[in-house]
């Protein structure tokens, strides 16, 4: 019993001692993130995680969707933006799959990450995709219909292409659109 109490107190003391250390690390990271002593160059590659399911059937052009930084942005060995930093993306174009074999379409864009109360603008998230097109199947059916006494080609209107589905948690590559923080851009302009 005595040993158990002693062990428990050691664990408690150890935990209490180590907690501030973890907090200090976090503070250091936060300070480095917002101190702006280092800048993030434009076109720095970033890995993003999509936090909502998207698709040609469920999304609409102009919809916004949440994103999260999947890997920290590190410049000269310093973590400037931590993993998990959130932001927004936008559905640029969404079209449901339709008749005559036309496939669903989805064009997405990453817009920004919220960093130190400012928006770090993003670009170049190439996550555009199409569903499976069946227009060639429909066209082949029409050719066959020409040789047939029955109007089988009309069935082509009922053949739909495939939808595009982008599940939640999808990882996408993008780039930073500008030097960050923007104040650094102004400083850079002043330097002859």
């Amino acid at each position: 019993m005595h040993w158990q109490l002693l062990l428990a107190s050691v664990v408690l003391v150890g935990g209490a001692m180590s907690m501030p250390a973890v907090g200090q690390d976090a503070t250091v990271a936060a300070a480095s993130e917002c101190a702006a002593s280092l800048t993030i160059p434009a076109l720095t590659p970033v890995r993003l995680e999509l936090l909502a399911p998207l698709g040609s059937k469920i999304s609409r052009s102009g919809d916004s969707f949440p994103i999260r930084l999947a890997e920290p942005i590190v410049v000269e060995g310093v973590v400037l933006v931590r993993e998990g930093t959130t932001g927004m993306g936008e559905v640029v174009h969404a079209k449901k799959a339709g008749g005559s074999g036309s496939a669903g379409e989805l064009v997405l864009a990453a817009r920004y990450l919220e960093v130190c109360g400012q928006r770090l603008r993003l670009r170049s998230m190439h996550l555009s995709s199409n569903g499976k097109s069946r227009t060639d199947t429909v066209n082949a059916l029409n050719v066959a219909s020409a040789a047939s006494p029955l109007p089988v080609g009309l069935f082509g209107f009922m053949i739909h292409g495939g939808q595009v589905n982008v599940p939640q948690g999808t990882i996408a590559e993008a780039k930073t659109a500008e030097i960050f923080p923007p104040a650094a851009t102004a400083d850079a302009r002043q330097v002859p």
């Binding site: 379409e105 064009v107 555009s128 199409n130 227009t135 082509g156």
Partner: peptide
């Protein structure tokens, strides 16, 4: 160009 009622329909996509 995909199938249409009277004429084909253009389908533009990424």
């Amino acid at each position: 160009i995909k199938m249409g009622f009277m004429v084909g329909r253009p389908d533009i996509r990424p």
